[in-house]
């Protein structure tokens, strides 16, 4: 029996079928229902914005890696595509396309690649891009339109609750909020379809339920208490705005959220707390994205203080 060349390496000698690419593909699959809803409610513009955001994100990552960092190009891991979709989900469908592209480039080049690429960004790139766009182009970023073909200018439900906008518009029904038939960013309006995507991610083991559940529960409980024990107001706060998008898809970003089970619950509660504080006391109608960005910054600290108790940490008998 003559043997040719073969491999000698340390154990384990088999690996699971999981891969970064498969995880990112699962996230894209989970985002699809809400994306279709976005197109249904906001029309062809939603498709254009999403396409531009994805192309700009992927292209800027490829250019950055190949020509600036001179490293292997890793766009096939699909993480840049996910960032692109999430940026599109976080802007109104009316946003000029060059601003969309600028947001993607900012997310990938500054927030992701300048800090070491995938896994090393300390805040969520898509949310950082949203904050960047909101600060730079406040008017365009809040140019909401009602769903439908006419694209009538309208206020978001949270804007109405806050009373900041024209009060001539009636508050949409809870059902419209749940299915997403309200003004807002492309991907944030349909709580039902975002939830569907979230359930898929939990089923696939991509995310744990800890962050989304504790985030949404905190918002529900706090708005119920602070709104004077008004269950319908609490339900309104839960389904309106970007809470489901933020809790399921943004706060669970691996690189910028804690890895420990306890840390993930703290992350969710912290996000919920800051969201409610901004919505009730802040100048802005919506606080989900800033709450996540703030908790992103706290993540290394949370991870450090929530290291799980190791097995065998019991006292040794004498």
């Amino acid at each position: 029996m003559e043997l040719g060349r073969f491999l000698v390496s340390p154990a384990p000698h088999i690996r699971s079928g999981e891969s970064t690419q498969r995880i990112m593909l699962d996230v894209i699959i989970a985002l699809l229902p809400a994306m279709i809803a976005g197109v249904w409610f906001f029309g062809i513009n939603a498709i254009l914005v999403t396409a531009v955001a994805v192309v700009a994100a992927v292209a800027s990552e490829a250019v950055m890696q190949k020509y600036v960092l001179k490293r292997p190009v890793t766009v096939s891991d699909l993480s840049a595509a996910v960032t692109g979709i999430l940026i599109a989900f976080n802007v109104p469908a009316t946003l000029p396309l060059w601003m969309v592209a600028l947001g993607s480039i900012f997310a990938i080049v500054i927030v992701k690649q300048c800090f070491g690429g995938l896994g090393n960004n300390f805040i969520n790139p898509a949310l950082a891009a949203r904050a960047f766009l909101l600060t730079s182009f406040a008017g365009d970023m809040t140019n909401w339109v009602a769903p439908g073909a006419d694209a009538v200018a309208a206020a978001t439900p949270l804007g109405l609750v806050k009373g900041a906008e024209a009060a001539t518009q009636a508050l949409p029904s809870l059902m419209d909020l749940f299915i997403g038939n309200v003004p807002g960013c492309i991907g944030e309006t349909s709580a039902a379809l975002l939830l569907l995507g979230g359930l898929y991610l939990v089923y696939r083991g991509v995310i744990s339920i800890r962050i989304p559940a504790s985030f949404i529960a905190t918002v529900a409980v706090l708005t119920f208490l602070m709104g004077g024990f008004d269950a319908s107001l609490a339900a309104y706060h839960v389904f309106a705005g970007g809470l489901f998008l933020g809790a399921i898809f943004m706060a669970t970003d691996y690189s910028s959220s804690p890895m420990t089970p306890m840390g993930q619950i703290i992350m969710g509660i912290g996000c919920g707390l800051i969201t409610v504080v901004i919505r009730f006391f802040g100048a802005l109608p919506e606080g989900v994205s800033y709450s996540i960005l703030l908790m992103n910054v706290a993540t290394p600290l949370i991870d450090k203080f929530t290291i799980p108790k190791k097995f065998g940490g019991v006292k040794k008998s004498a």
Partner: peptide
């Protein structure tokens, strides 16, 4: 079967933390 996959960036998914039978990180 023996082919070794190329390692890439840690994505901090925390799966190693979940599976560790000693609850290490």
């Amino acid at each position: 079967e023996a082919r070794l996959p190329e390692p890439s960036n840690c994505i901090r998914c925390g799966k190693c933390v979940d599976v560790c039978p000693i609850s290490l990180m």
